[in-house]
Amino acid sequence: MIQINSVRHGFLSIPDLTISPGMVAITGPNGSGKTTLLEMIAGIITPPGSISIDGVDPRQVTVGWVGEFPDCNMIFTRVFDEIASPLRFVQQPCEEIDALVHGIAGLIGLTDQLDHPIRRLSGGQKVLAALAAALINRPEVLILDETDSHLDATTLNTVDSIIRSAAVPYLLFATHRPDRVARADRVIVLQDGRVLREGTPDEIYQETLSRTRDHLTPLRLLRNPELWRAVYATDP
């Protein structure tokens, strides 16, 4: 379990939150604290209070992170070097790194691109390269911070199948997309720096609809998880 207790950072305040293993969507309005919450779980921010991942401090847990524009966070020129970087930083043996990079590149479909400069990759390939770098040291937590914002359905399906095969215990992803929320095991909704609600995609959808009817109600009908399950059942 990821356990968060009595945490405050800026406007974000979380008295008590438990996150079970699985796919967890973090959603909520712009500026509600999604990225801040993810940064705390990743150990990038260390606020007052308590955060633990299976009883361990986040800074002692292996965390993979892919952002909205992954190539903005890449520090190496060559695809191979970027994917290998998490292992090189912890001084793994070169032969082991070489084998692991080729292994994950094969899984992700980037073998032919390993010697190419990152800038020559397409947008989708850059996301896959960032995903490979995030997964190469077998993280216990994988965080995708609105990585889906600019991706088409085909590329997202590729990302999904890679993540499934990687079997990361905790997958947390911030998203605004209803099709992504529908695929989560649990959903955490943030608003104004606080956890507004937490539940399954269907519970969250029903609770959202049952609130006071407003101008967004018709638009919310397109967020129905049942609709998206039907879409992907006939069009996987």
Binding site: P218, L221, V231, Y232, D235
Partner: peptide
């Protein structure tokens, strides 16, 4: 995209791509 394909397969009255059109079709 998948959502449009799904709607077109189930509703032959879809005449536009606005979210209003999609909500009505759904």
């Amino acid at each position: 995209p998948p959502l449009i394909r799904y709607i077109l397969n189930h509703d032959h009255e879809l005449s536009g791509l606005s979210w209003h059109d999609l909500v009505e079709a759904v």
